[in-house]
Design a protein around this nucleic acid. Structure first.
Lengths: 165, 165
DNA sequence: CCCAGTAGCTTGACATGTCAACGATTAATG
DNA sequence: CATTAATCGTTGACATGTCAAGCTACTGGG
């Protein structure tokens, strides 16, 4: 990947803490944002180089491939994507012929979604590659550290909703 | 804030690991993405409710207020924003009268940026609010945990560039 | 049955983020 | 000094993400 290495210890802040450059804690949301952006860029690049789809579309395809979901509502519930975004992602995937939608259910508002053969082929081609990426990403953490990291993230997730300002 | 609580332990994956819902580690990038989105939404909402500017613009204003930067290059270097994005953010901030730009330097490509009085007023009004938010966010971590969390993020940051796929 | 409320989805509007091509200027090097 | 290369910035194109208004279909209480 790219990325100029710069600033890992030398930037000012994350947009949330104005001064106070001395305390690493001040950089938390900034650094989260950056590492998140880098991981996304790496995943998107990987998908592009292997002739795949954009990252957001890929995530929808995976959910459908796993058989976990068959409607937009379920995609929204599982992945916590915005419903508007899902609506447009589904449109795009249908246009590209990677998924199909049937409206025959009881509830006429709902379209039942499924992968086409093309969509299935793409997912099955990319899955091993994405699994290998995941393996390499996690290789820098011990099992205990992985657990600890996830627990930290959960805690952040919890506190984000409780801020009383 | 909003957010339907759902799925914190029950979703399939993060778009990077197709199956394997049993291992929390499989959810890492997904959960990072979600917690990051939630923190961003919370910060943006806070800025909006207090009559401020959008989050990205806010971050640029803060960098300028701190006196750390005076050109787009320095913003890109410090904050690791995309230079195209910075170019447009600066345009917007100038249109809104929050910053000003002078082209008088040696390097005729560079504009020297600074906050206007309006820009300074907005930043100084919002800073205490954002500092309180940061304090509350970090209140769920002990000092030792904060250090540990930052170290984890650094490790992720490092490995993201080294993936050989 | 009626109809007010809710649910699933669509759409518009905007903000954010990323990449790549390009223009202008400056720096480096023969 | 003259090219060439690198740097700073702009712009176009597109992907992503978020919010809110509105549409249609379903649902439940009267």
């Amino acid at each position: 990947m790219k990325h100029p290495v710069a600033m890992d210890t030398n930037f000012k802040d994350d947009g949330d803490t104005p001064y106070d450059t001395s305390k690493p804690s001040s950089f938390l949301t900034y650094r989260l944002s950056r590492v998140q952006a880098r991981l996304n860029a790496q995943a998107a690049d990987l998908l592009r180089r292997h002739g795949g789809v954009p990252l957001a579309q890929w995530r929808v395809l995976l959910l459908l491939y796993g058989g976990d979901v068959s409607s937009q509502k379920e995609i929204v519930g599982l992945a916590q994507f915005d419903k508007g975004q899902v609506s447009r992602l589904v449109d795009t995937l249908i246009e590209r012929g990677l998924i199909s939608a049937k409206s025959g259910g009881k509830d006429k508002r709902v379209r039942t979604l499924s992968l086409t053969d093309d969509g299935t082929a793409i997912v099955e081609r990319l899955i091993p590659i994405m699994r290998e990426r995941q393996r390499q990403l996690l290789s820098v953490f011990s099992a205990e550290e992985q657990t600890r990291l996830m627990e930290f993230i959960s805690r952040l997730d919890g506190v984000a909703d409780k801020l009383d300002i």
